[in-house]
């Protein structure tokens, strides 16, 4: 393992280094769980010519992007990259950029019997504003003769209904415990690592049905322990990655260690470069997980989420927010 690690350290050029990519399913059969989705997709793929636009919705790390790529492979085989445009709503600066890219990609394409349309995979579509989504709907219509869209989102409710009604919607569920652990075990086997059941259990618990996180954790824990992972290693790693860092910050607030919490947050923010609103989102999720979201804490988050858009310094707003949260926790004991 160590040798492997050193090798990778020398060159980051092989994406297979990352187990999440190495073990990303390439066929429908390999996909873990999501039986209903897989079954209805099989049906749709029987009559490719009539494939509608697809909308995948569900929690992170449940196979949405994976399935979209599987479909691309099913449609175009090895040449899938040629006919597929992968976009990320949160990466593109505005709907105009997206329109431009789709235009260039679809414009001079003539459908054939083998390749009846090109495929646009638009991930994180729910990060778009409703105006942008309205524009997106029009783009989908303009290029419908030559192009099919697969839209991917976490929250279906954040997709405007005109888009929903034009797509076949698939809801993805969190991966259940047994299946996830079974999958992790198969990875361990393949990598010839000896990973005890309690470690895998722990990994599942902290990743809460998110397979990407689970696989990432597994790989890290293997790296850190040098081949013989312990439950303790898992916990240690969790404290250093999202959302474990956020959990740590909240824990500090609950202990009344306000200054330390702020320090941790800024450290996290500085390295990751995430913006203030993203931080609030992460905190919101964490409070939800810990059952700490109540009218009081929710109001605090909402208040500062709003102020963040208006203010000059994110740090000032975030700090004031943490102070208020610390106060709220103190009140409840």
């Amino acid at each position: 393992m160590l040798i492997y690690g050193v090798f990778i350290k020398m060159s980051f050029s092989r994406i297979d280094t990352l187990w999440v990519e190495k073990y990303r399913p390439k066929t429908l059969e390999e996909v873990v769980d999501q039986e209903e989705v897989v079954a209805s997709l099989k049906n749709i793929m029987n009559n490719i010519q009539e494939m509608p636009h697809l909308l995948f919705a569900g929690p992170p790390g449940t196979g949405k992007t994976t399935l979209a790529l599987v479909i691309a492979r099913m449609l175009y085989g090895d040449k899938w990259r040629e006919y597929t445009l992968e976009l990320n709503a949160s990466d593109e600066r505005g709907i105009n950029v997206i329109r431009e890219k789709v235009k260039v990609f679809s414009q001079y394409f003539t459908p054939t019997k083998e390749v009846p349309f090109k495929l646009v995979i638009l991930d994180e579509a729910d990060m778009m504003t409703s105006e942008a989504q309205t524009a997106l709907r029009r783009i989908m219509e303009i290029y419908s003769r030559t192009t099919r869209f697969i839209l991917i989102c976490n929250y279906l409710t954040r997709i405007i209904s005109p888009i929903q009604s034009r797509c076949a919607t698939f809801k993805f569920k969190r991966i259940p415990r047994e299946l996830a652990i079974k999958y992790l075990k198969s990875i361990c086997e393949n990598e010839k690592v000896d990973c005890a059941d309690d470690v895998l259990e722990r990994i599942y618990e902290v990743s809460a049905g998110d397979l990407r996180r689970a696989i990432n954790l597994l790989q890290s824990v293997v790296n850190v322990s040098g081949g013989k992972p312990k439950v303790r290693d898992v916990d240690e790693i969790v404290g250093k990655v999202t959302p474990g860092v956020i959990a740590g910050i909240i824990e500090r607030l609950r202990l009344g260690e306000f200054k330390e919490a702020v320090d941790k947050l800024f450290e996290f923010k500085a390295v990751s470069g995430v913006d203030g609103q993203e931080v609030i989102k992460l905190i919101l999720n964490e409070l939800m997980m810990k059952n700490l979201l109540n009218p009081k804490t929710a109001e605090i988050l909402a208040k500062y989420d709003f102020r963040m858009t208006e203010g000059a310094y994110e740090e000032v707003q975030l700090t004031a927010m943490l102070a208020e949260l610390a106060g709220a926790f103190k009140g409840t004991g």
Binding site: G5, V20, N88, S90, E124, N216, S220, V224, V241, G273
Partner: peptide, 25 residues
């Protein structure tokens, strides 16, 4: 190294991939 091969946005990379890979750097 990762753009186009990671199948995720930069934001997701920062939050969900980077913290696990910095040991390789």
């Amino acid at each position: 190294y990762l753009k186009g091969r990671l199948h995720c946005s930069y934001r997701k990379f920062v939050l969900e991939v980077f913290p696990y890979v910095c040991g390789y750097l």
